[in-house]
């Protein structure tokens, strides 16, 4: 399929935050004006924090396991709709719903809300291609759809993506870190600058996908510029958001 058939993804800035790093609304001054703001993951229904939530450092990064808690789409829309409408930043809603009808409902709602510029659809772990295609079918609409997949997943599912998908975000991998002295194994998302060589390698491989690729897990300005100079359509800043915000002047 020709790339030009896809809904064009508007990228007024090639720098944005990564879902899960800056809350649900861009009111916290972490982003320069005009940067794209990606919300924390939003599900159809309320999600509780994981019972074994944890933050565990390892050399070069850390593992974060939260369970992606959120109040559910309706509550989040009620609370933040006016913020998104008034924001200078284009808003991308990161959706993790696995309910096809619910996912479609969220997308229809987003189409009615001023300020929302794209849906970023988070694929579940070990998502088969058939299920991915059903999710894409439910999430397709009038606003661009960005597919989020984690490094470490089977990336071959991304071959010949339908035109409903405007771009792919490559997120950092999941992993396991033993907890303290008891050695209990904690599963979660990995973050940190030590992952960048793997992320850059995946970006190189992604050249064959014939679709814009947004590289997540960026922890400093130099790595972000390297990714942009090597094929990334945009980059997502990881824990830098927790250290005071995106670099100015980007």
């Amino acid at each position: 399929m020709n790339e030009t058939d896809r809904i064009v993804l508007d990228l007024p800035s090639r720098w944005m935050n990564q879902a899960g790093t800056a809350g649900f609304s861009p009111g916290n001054q972490l982003l320069p004006n005009g940067s794209i703001f990606v919300t924390n993951p939003v599900s159809l229904r309320v999600r509780m924090p994981s019972a074994d939530r944890n933050l565990l450092p390892f050399p070069g990064g850390f593992l974060l396991h939260t369970g992606l808690p959120n109040a559910g789409w309706k509550a989040i829309r009620r609370k933040y709709q006016s913020h998104w409408h008034q924001s200078d930043s284009p808003i991308w809603i990161h959706v993790i719903s696995q309910d096809l009808a619910g996912l479609e409902g969220i997308v229809r709602d987003c189409e009615e809300i001023d300020g929302i510029a794209a849906i970023e659809l988070g694929l579940p772990p070990a998502c088969p291609r058939d299920w991915m295609m059903q999710l894409i079918q439910s999430a397709r609409g009038e606003i661009p759809l960005v597919l989020h997949i984690s490094l470490g997943e089977d990336l071959s599912v991304l071959s010949s993506l339908p035109e409903a998908v405007s771009a792919v975000t490559l997120g950092t991998p999941r992993g396991i870190v033993p907890e303290g002295e008891n050695g209990r194994l904690i599963h979660g998302r990995l973050h940190g600058p030590g992952l960048f060589p793997q992320m850059l390698n995946a970006l190189q491989d992604a050249r064959t996908w014939q679709i814009p690729v947004i590289l997540g897990g960026i922890c400093n300005q130099k790595d972000g510029e390297t990714a942009l100079n090597n094929g990334a359509a945009a980059v997502q800043i990881d824990h830098l958001c927790w250290q005071g915000g995106l670099p100015t002047g980007l």
Binding site: G20, T21, A22, G23, N40, P49, N54, L64, P69, C241
Partner: peptide, 9 residues
């Protein structure tokens, strides 16, 4: 608190 990630919930 800006991340609202929930790890400290």
């Amino acid at each position: 608190g800006t991340a609202e990630c929930g790890v400290c919930a």
